[in-house]
Amino acid sequence: MAKKKDDQKLANELADLTDRIFDGEQIEASGLDNLGETVQKLQAASQATPDPNFAIRLRNLVVAALPKKKESVSERLQEVIARLVGDEEFRNNFFASPEATLQRAGFQLSPAEIAALKEMEPENLEEWLTDLDERISKSGLL
């Protein structure tokens, strides 16, 4: 119980010290077993500001990446297929765990689209791609 009280006292002291670091105060060695130094290092390491040019470039990129409400099925599928063809790691992960891989990569496909993709076999990728249009048309997805 006494230790818990002591720890709470030290925790309050460290919190005050942290607030002072944020206020820009120069902190000398404290009675906190140099925990203040660790706080200072961590704070300094995480206070960077993005380069303005990067911020603008990325803004344009991500705003353009926002899906339109009526995005067509074929556009979404094309994006996944392009990734499957060009990214070996993504492809391997997809064949191991399709739903989880698509979700992790931020792709939102309907169950029917996922089902169409799951029919694909890694070794028959080229053949599968050739027939894709026809199969999706038949399933009424387009």
Partner: peptide, 30 residues
């Protein structure tokens, strides 16, 4: 942006911060 960027700065090497931040926001958009 700045909140995410600072989190990434605390977790990945400086040279990769912009790339990882970009991937995060592309994922958020999608």
């Amino acid at each position: 942006l700045t909140k995410v960027y600072r989190r990434v700065c605390a977790l990945v090497p400086e040279s990769d911060v912009e790339d990882v931040t970009q991937e995060i926001f592309i994922s958020v958009a999608r």
